[in-house]
Design a protein around this nucleic acid. Sequence first.
DNA 1: TCGCTTCGATTACGTATGTAGTCGGAGATT
DNA 2: AATCTCCGACTACATACGTAATCGAAGCGA
Lengths: 122, 122
Amino acid sequence: MQERISDAELAIMEILWEQAPLTATDVASRVLDDRDWSLATVKTLLSRLLAKAAVEHRTEGRRFLYSPLVDREDYVAGESKRLVDRLFGGKFMPLVAHLAEQEKLSDADIAEIEKLLREMKS
Amino acid sequence: MQERISDAELAIMEILWEQAPLTATDVASRVLDDRDWSLATVKTLLSRLLAKAAVEHRTEGRRFLYSPLVDREDYVAGESKRLVDRLFGGKFMPLVAHLAEQEKLSDADIAEIEKLLREMKS
DNA sequence: TCGCTTCGATTACGTATGTAGTCGGAGATT
DNA sequence: AATCTCCGACTACATACGTAATCGAAGCGA
């Protein structure tokens, strides 16, 4: 079963979802825009993602080119479901209600959601 | 800053949010409906929650009565925000759209959400 | 061919987490 | 008072995670 991707690993995945394949060094240089990690750290995270089968690599010369194996959509879906299951008894409605209460939704936001819902109903 | 509550700890919090104060033994007996934990495990989790200031205890005779310190609403809000920040760039709408796509919402669900939105708009 | 550079692999290490056992003290029992 | 029992505190230990250093092989420049 799909092992979970940690917070730090997610930063790596985001890079690869944006562009792939990339070498470890490429990933590191991009990730450095956000996080202050050493190259070694990035490599460790890539290895762990490999072990979790969240990314794959192809040999290019003497280095590796990494690509995501897990789809971002799938990951997002899984994590969203996890939250809904953990905190809202698996029900979608309470989450919407909760978020709606928390957030100050603009009328435009609401209109957009309504449109979405109308489309779903058809 | 509020330390994070782990999955296992959350199970304990849920018990205490439902009813409090409770002794460790009470919590354990209730949690056993869901999880197959030993009393020792429950006590450890309670200690850790105490250390995280997520619960408090009051001495009653020679035992403790535990009560939640963190409000469920706050916790849920925090975790929801965390997910939205991590995966949806902090935007609420994409999450709703995503969930709406994933879930098979019944017409009744949709109607309910629409009602909620109408109320908010006013 | 001999270092130097560059990779991936291995090892490291502190904290968090899941899960639980043990110990010492305070009450209860006899 | 001697013992039994129950409780919280402390200890244990494997795995995950964040963060990184080091090591050995392979290629490259001189």
